[in-house]
Structure formats: C-alpha cells, structure tokens
C-alpha cells in the first residue's frame, strides 16, 4: 500500500468516526479490511483507496469505518465503573422526583454488552419507584442491530459475566444466548456518532463513554468531552476508560473526588449551565 492510499483511507475513517490511524497501523488495515476487499473483488488496499475517491462510495466508506472501529467487548468490562454506578444510582434516584425517568447512555455501545450490564445492575437496585432508560449508540450499523437483537455467542456470555447472572437474565436459543425480554425492554439502540450534534439524544443522569477517546486526537477529545458535558445533568456521572482523562482537555468536567474513571460537572459550570 502506498503512503498516499494509507493517508486517504485514514482521512475517510477520521472524518466519519474521529478515529486517528497513525502510520504504524498498516497491519491493522490489512487484517481488518481483508474481508471487505474480498467481498468487493478489490485486489489491494490501493484499489480500495482508489474506489473510495469516488463520491458515490459512501456505503463503502461506512463499511471501511465500521471494520476499523469495531472492538471486542465484554460484560461488566473493567468492574470499577459498575461498582461506582451501584453506589451512585440510588443517590441520583433519590435526588429525582418519585416516578421520574433516569436516563443512562452507553456511548459507543458496540454489541450491547455495556448497556445490558447496566440493565442487569439496575435490576438489582432499589430505586424507590424511579424508572431507568438505557440508550446505546454506535457508529456501526451492524453492531447496533446485533445489540438490539440481544443474541450473544457462548464465548461472549462467558466474558465478564457471572454464571448466576447468565441463568437469571438470558435464554438459550439454539446454541446462542439471548438477553431476556425484560432487559431488552430497558435498553434502546440507535446509530449515532459522537462527532455529530449530541443534543438530539437529550440529557443524561449517567454517561458511559469508555475506550473511545483514546482513538481521537486532542482537539477531537476536547470537542467530544465538551459535547458530552453539555448532555450530562449537573449532578450526573460520566465514566471514561481507564486510560482516558479530562485533564488538560476541558474544564467542563472534573474527576470525582477519590474516584478513578468517574467524572462530573464542576460546581461553577453546573451553576452556569
């Protein structure tokens, strides 16, 4: 692959997803895009780059972006945010009027493991009559469709999830495992990009946006964090991935005292907002 082809493909992916592909990621393009080349009968990544230059190739550009941004996921990935949510959600619920709806956003939800983990956790909490709505969004159509269906392989249901929760919340359907109708009714999945206008998603009590910012350059990180802060209620909680931070990127979010990976809106900003 020529450097020009690499730069062109990287540019397409960045404009659609924010994902920054550094020049050492050539192998990643080879392995992730191989199936796509085969499907479209393209001989090489250079041929792919050439085809992407055609303005009518937006479906192909979507497929390329999807292949490069889909990541492995597991239930209750990195236990800490879920431990924190277990404590934080009843507090948030008590701060809301009885009967009100708490909204939780799984941004970059992939195949839905995070959203359904949140749903399982909510089921074990007493929120004194407050209801919970979980919204999962991802830029990749195929994973959003999978998340909505709620089917998981035997391999997937064993990653991160205790057997006790598997038998409680899943049904077995011809070799696959499907999330129970009760949990599926708690979660809604939509296609959406973090680079677009986030106001349409509404405001949230809790936002999970983990292991997404690591792929963005600093200006994009700042832009996304500010947009997320604007959708977070003044006392809401934002969870980022273990390798991610708001420090040096925005002052509209600050780490919660004594917590790792949990962020809130600083008081001044909350008053101003």
């Amino acid at each position: 692959m020529t450097p020009e082809s690499f730069a062109f493909i990287a540019g397409v992916v960045k404009s659609r997803s924010g994902l920054v592909l550094t020049s050492d990621k050539g192998y990643m393009l080879e392995t992730r895009l191989g199936p796509l080349l085969k499907r479209d009968g393209l001989a090489s990544l250079d041929a792919l780059a050439l085809k992407l230059r055609d303005p009518r190739s937006s479906a192909l550009a979507d497929a390329v972006t999807e292949a490069l941004t889909t990541n492995e996921s597991s239930f209750f990935r990195d236990g800490k945010p879920f431990d924190h949510l277990r404590q934080a959600l009843p507090v948030l619920a008590r701060a809301r009027a009885p009967g009100s709806l708490l909204r939780i956003w799984s941004a970059a939800c992939s195949t839905g493991q995070e959203a359904y983990s949140i749903a399982m956790l909510v089921q074990e909490l007493n929120l004194e009559g407050r209801r919970v709505e979980i919204i999962g969004t991802d830029i990749a159509d195929s994973v959003v469709a999978r998340a909505r269906e709620g089917y998981f392989t035997q391999f997937e249901v064993q990653r991160g999830m205790p057997a006790r929760l598997l038998v409680k919340h899943f049904r077995q359907e011809s070799g696959r495992w499907r999330v129970s109708p009760e949990l599926r009714a708690m979660a809604r999945f939509e296609r959406g990009t973090l680079l677009g206008d986030l106001r349409g998603f509404g405001r949230f009590d809790v936002i999970f946006c983990r292991n997404v910012l690591i792929y963005f350059d600093a200006p994009t990180k700042t832009r996304v964090l500010n947009a997320l802060a604007a959708q977070l209620l003044p006392d809401g909680v934002l969870y980022l991935g273990g390798a991610e931070t708001v420090l040096g990127l925005t002052d509209r979010l600050a780490p919660l005292a004594g917590e790792r990976g949990a962020y809130g809106r600083p008081r001044e900003a909350a008053l101003a907002g």
């Binding site: 990935r77 990195d78 236990g79 800490k80 431990d83 205790p162 057997a163």
Partner: peptide, 12 residues
C-alpha cells in the same frame, strides 16, 4: 477466576 475472587480485575 476474577468472578470467584481469586484474581483481581486487572483493569480495576
């Protein structure tokens, strides 16, 4: 083995 408490969740 993390679930049964014999290993730490490495990311936690």
């Amino acid at each position: 083995f993390v679930q049964v408490g014999l290993l730490r969740d490495e990311a936690a």
